[in-house]
Design a binder for these strands. Structure first.
Lengths: 168, 168
DNA sequence: ATAATAGATGCCTTTAAGGTTCATCTATTA
DNA sequence: TAATAGATGAACCTTAAAGGCATCTATTAT
């Protein structure tokens, strides 16, 4: 396989990825529009813009104030209260989730592929960086707890604190 | 074994337990006094009172305001700021830990027997009740994460959300 | 096409947790 | 007993988040 050939594959993959991303976003927005409609709500430009910012910054774990700042760049007339209200709405709709890193503010992240597989966070105590971990490994543990405590588990949140590879 | 005999055993056990509890508290306060002294701090009546309230309400997961209310009953001249400062101090000293139940305030709990075994929380989404679970079962999982992500884990926090036995 | 209506927005105000400041107090050491 | 470091309480400050309300907007009914 020549270098050129590989390069072409990479270009194609990137193009395909971007096109795909765009389609996913559109599908998502359409889906949201439907969900909102069912509850008598509307998909306004402000709500679109807010969700777009979250999608464009996946893995960033932005807080409300940060999201507001980014949305305002593109949509300067938006008010902070609207962003607060939109985030609450998107959270209720299970489009995004709150994450609490004990730094005194609520952060949000996009809920990729619904409720399928859980992911959790490694939080570096030095640099504050957040690394995401995929793990469905708590499921058998959940079963155990459910029988021992007669408690019906709906969700769980796991945080690991420590030192990241960069800081070591 | 007669009923009377059993009753005497129960009484004795209760007495022993209480005496033991008292001793544990005294030991703890002495230990804290030493730790504070090493850092040039003092064990004041306000700090004693605050820690005592936490000890007497183990399993209650009180927030600062609640702790303040209880301490004030016994020590009415105490100020809220002192309670905030004391809780910060006790947290730094690893005597107590913050727990965040995403209800907008920091709650605290006493760190029983040091860092030995981890415990986590089941949070009922209906009544808000908190049940404690003992589990060291995450340890092998931690090892896995440490190798995969080259992340040195120091601590973890796990919360399970769902419906408790009472609410079912 | 137009009016009516439900919902959304933006600005401003309010709330509440938590922190800070500073003069006063307290306990320990010199 | 005086000096000193730390602690305290009252008041004020900060900040995230929410609420109120008049205005705006888009959809539905006329």
């Amino acid at each position: 396989m020549t270098k050129t050939y590989l390069y072409i594959i990479l270009l194609f993959e990137k193009y395909y990825y971007l096109r795909n991303e765009g389609e996913i976003v559109e599908d998502l927005l359409e889906g949201l529009k439907e969900k909102l409609k069912q509850k008598g709500y509307k998909l306004t430009p402000q709500r679109r813009a807010t969700l777009n910012i979250i999608l464009e910054n996946q893995g960033e774990h932005l807080n409300t104030e940060e999201i507001y700042g980014l949305v305002k760049e593109r949509c300067p007339e938006i008010g902070l209260a609207t962003v607060y209200r939109t985030l609450q709405l998107l959270d209720e709709m299970q489009i995004i989730s709150k994450i609490n890193l004990d730094d005194g503010c609520i952060r949000y992240e996009f809920n990729a592929d619904g409720d399928e597989h859980q992911h959790h966070h490694l939080i570096c105590q030095k640099c504050g960086n957040i690394i995401e971990v995929e793990l469905d490994l708590l499921e058998h543990l959940e079963e155990e707890i459910e029988t021992i405590h007669d408690f019906e588990i709906k969700d769980h949140k796991v945080k690991f604190f420590g030192i990241c590879s960069m800081c070591k």
